[in-house]
Simulated assay, not measured.
Amino acid sequence: MINRRTLLGSALAAPFLSLLPRQARAAQWPAAGPIRLVVAQGGGGNADVVARILVEALEPVLGQRIVVENNGTASGMRATEDVSKAEPDGYTLLVGTSSQLVHNIALFDPLPVDIESTLRGVAMINEVPMVMCVPKDSPDTDLAGLTERVLADPAAFQYGSGPTGTTTHITGALFLQRIGAEDVVHIPYPRSPEAMVDLIAGRLNFVFDPSLTAIGQVQGDAVRPLGVSAPVRLPALAEVPTMEEAGLPGFVSQTWNTISAPADTPQEIVDTLNTMINEIVQSDEMRTRLEDLASIVPPAKTPAEVDAYYAEQRETWIPVVRGTGARREG
Rank of each mutant, 00 (worst) to 15 (best):
Tyr159Glu: 03
Thr164Arg: 10
Val320Gly: 02
Ser75His: 03
Gly162Asn: 03
Ala222Thr: 09
Gln158Ile: 03
Leu290Ser: 08
Glu285Val: 15
Lys301His: 07
Gln100Lys: 09
Ile105His: 01
Gln267Gly: 01
Asn70Tyr: 05
Ala326Leu: 06
Arg149Phe: 02
Gly165Ser: 07
Arg322Asn: 12
Asn278Met: 07
Gly96Pro: 02
Thr141Gly: 13
Gly96Asn: 09
Val102Arg: 07
Leu58Asp: 06
Ile269Trp: 05
Ala106Asp: 06
Thr242Gln: 04
Ala27Val: 12
Arg25Leu: 13
Ala14Leu: 14
Asn205Gln: 13
Ala79Phe: 04
Glu279Lys: 14
Arg52Glu: 12
Asp142Phe: 05
Glu56Gln: 14
Gly45Leu: 06
Ser229Met: 09
Ala230Asp: 06
Val68Lys: 01
Ser98Asp: 07
Val55His: 02
Arg203Tyr: 08
Val67Ile: 13
Val320Arg: 13
Gln177Arg: 13
Glu312Gln: 15
Asn278Tyr: 01
Ala57Pro: 00
Gly44His: 02
Arg233Phe: 00
Thr147Pro: 04
Pro60Leu: 08
Ala222Gln: 15
Ile2Asn: 08
Arg78Val: 09
Pro249Tyr: 02
Asp109Gly: 15
Thr171Cys: 13
Val232Ala: 12
Ile215Val: 14
Tyr309Ile: 02
Leu226Arg: 06
Ile200Asn: 02
Gly162Met: 04
Val218Gly: 02
Asp114Ser: 15
Leu119Ala: 09
Met243Glu: 01
Gly90Trp: 06
Ile269Asn: 08
Ser75Met: 03
Ile115Glu: 06
Tyr159Gly: 11
Glu279Arg: 15
Met132Leu: 15
Thr92Asp: 09
Val95Gly: 08
Leu248His: 04
Pro190Cys: 10
Ile125Thr: 07
Val150Gln: 06
Val228Ala: 04
Val184Ala: 03
Leu93Arg: 05
Glu56Lys: 14
Pro163Asp: 06
Val113Thr: 15
Asp209Lys: 01
Ala79Asp: 11
Asp89Arg: 14
Ala27His: 12
Ala214Glu: 01
Arg178His: 10
Glu239Asp: 15
Pro231Met: 04
Gly42Ile: 03
Thr6Ala: 14
Pro249Glu: 13
Pro241Glu: 05
Leu293His: 12
Arg65Pro: 00
Arg224Met: 05
Val67Met: 07
Ala26Asn: 13
Ala246Pro: 02
Met276Val: 13
Gln28Lys: 14
Leu273Lys: 12
Val218Arg: 03
Pro210Asn: 14
Gly90Val: 11
Ile269Glu: 03
Asn46Thr: 01
Gly162Ser: 02
Gly72Ile: 04
Asn71Arg: 08
Pro21Gln: 10
Ser161Phe: 06
Gly160Leu: 08
Glu285Ala: 15
Val50Glu: 02
Gly121Cys: 06
Tyr91Ala: 12
Arg224His: 13
Val184Gly: 07
Ser84Leu: 03
Asn205Leu: 02
Gln64Ala: 11
His186Gly: 08
Val55Cys: 07
Ile2Tyr: 03
Ala294Asn: 02
Asp82Thr: 10
Pro21Leu: 11
Ala144Asp: 05
Ile277Pro: 05
Thr118Gly: 00
Leu273Ile: 11
Asp292Arg: 14
Val150Ile: 15
Ala222Ser: 14
Pro319Asn: 05
Asp114His: 11
Gly323Ile: 01
Asp48Tyr: 00
Thr316Tyr: 00
Gln254Phe: 12
Glu285Thr: 14
Thr118Arg: 15
Ala47Glu: 07
Arg203Asp: 12
Val297Pro: 05
Gln219Asp: 05
Lys136Ile: 14
Leu234Gly: 07
Gly121Gln: 11
Val281Pro: 06
